[in-house]
């Protein structure tokens, strides 16, 4: 089943067939989300897609085991996984490592694939019935790098197959459209701004007519600002996530930097959107104005929506924009879209 066959009916019910509850998976640079159980979002899990390495010592191992922290041991080092990794990195004043970079599996990390699989294992239990479909998000091809995501997709397909599922990829931004615009015939533009990249999908009647990505995201903001103010990126990330409000004037150097970096990201995004849509044969002539949905952790700071809308006003899009909205839960929107695809397939 392709995304194009998604019905416009809102489907968030728990699946009863297909051998077990449906799961939608969003594998992002910063976080991995496994979406379950429909609108209540109960049972949905989110884990940081990160790890933190400490030397293997009996005492350390015991502490981790006592605290039920997830880790694995390799080459006399303990790899602490997921949210716990960020907690430990913060406490010990270090920086977590990422098994993914710029939206794709980070091939510079020797243990990257093993780390992602270790994080995924408890989030994706083996299905009650072999071959149950599982929809997972894949990024769009980065601009000027066609085919870059194929390796990425095949890694996760192989892994999910090994777990007993029938893997079904869905473009990350298309999943956002499915999740947020299903009552509008899944017609509009979905944008998922994650840690490593921004994914964009122009969807018409649930057909992903144009998909692409730019390799800039939350990490780009953290690193750019960190470099310019001489602070570690992790500190910038914490400030961005906990304090930043783009709707009010910046109060210090770090906030000045964050405002500037956000403006740069939004401007790049708007400019690329205009360029790609104008250059595509797949964008139909439409009389209606379209909604744009923003999702992903990078749009969480208040004022993001308004700032992006302002940047859109500066470019000449080939379609009219009705409104720019934020996803109901920006962190879960992609996984929810994948989940809705799974439920739709299960019911069809």
């Amino acid at each position: 089943m392709a995304p194009g066959s998604m019905t416009t009916r809102r489907k968030t019910a728990r699946s009863s067939g297909g051998g077990g509850p449906s799961i939608g998976l969003d594998i992002g640079t910063a976080n991995i989300v496994a979406y379950r159980n429909g609108q209540s979002e109960k049972g949905t899990q989110m884990e940081a897609n990160a790890f933190f390495t400490v030397p293997s010592m009996p005492n350390t191992r015991k502490i981790l085991e006592d605290k039920a922290v997830r880790f694995f041991e390799k080459d006399e080092r303990l790899h602490i996984l997921g949210n716990a990794a960020e907690e430990f990195a913060n406490i010990l004043g270090g920086t977590t490592r990422r098994p993914m970079e710029d939206g794709l599996v980070n091939l510079k990390e020797d243990d990257g694939i093993q780390v992602i699989q270790a994080i995924l294992d408890p989030m994706v239990p083996e299905p009650a019935q072999k071959g149950q479909p599982l929809w997972f998000s894949v990024p769009g091809d980065p601009l000027d790098r066609n085919g870059a995501v194929l390796f990425n997709e095949s890694i996760f397909k192989t892994y999910l197959k090994g777990r007993g599922y029938t893997p079904r990829p869905i473009n990350e931004a298309m999943a956002v459209v499915v999740s947020e615009l299903s009552d509008q015939h899944a017609t509009g533009i979905g944008i998922s701004m994650g840690g490593g990249m921004c994914n964009i999908c122009f969807s018409y009647l649930s057909i992903p007519a144009v998909t692409y990505s730019i390799q800039k995201g939350g990490d780009f903001i953290d690193q750019t600002v960190g470099r310019s103010v001489g602070e570690p990126a992790t500190k910038i990330k914490a400030i961005k996530e906990q304090e930043l409000d783009l709707s009010v004037a910046p109060r210090n150097n770090i906030e000045h930097g964050l405002h500037a970096a956000y403006d740069d990201l939004f401007a790049s995004l708007a400019e690329s959107l205009a360029r790609v849509l104008r250059g595509s044969d797949n964008v139909p002539r439409l009389n209606q104005a379209l909604p744009i949905v923003l999702s992903g952790g990078t749009v969480l700071p208040p004022g993001s929506r308004e700032r992006f809308a302002a940047c859109l006003g500066e470019v000449d899009l080939p379609v009219r924009v009705a409104k720019v909205v934020q996803a109901r839960n920006p962190l879960y929107a992609t996984a929810k879209g994948a989940y809705m695809m799974a439920v739709a397939e299960d019911e069809s």
């Binding site: 194009g4 015939h185 009647l205 057909i207 992903p208 007519a209 797949n282 139909p284």
Partner: peptide, 14 residues
């Protein structure tokens, strides 16, 4: 181009 075909097909079916 399949995507253009899908767009036409979906529009007419609608």
């Amino acid at each position: 181009r399949p995507v253009r075909g899908q767009i036409i097909a979906k529009s007419l079916a609608l």
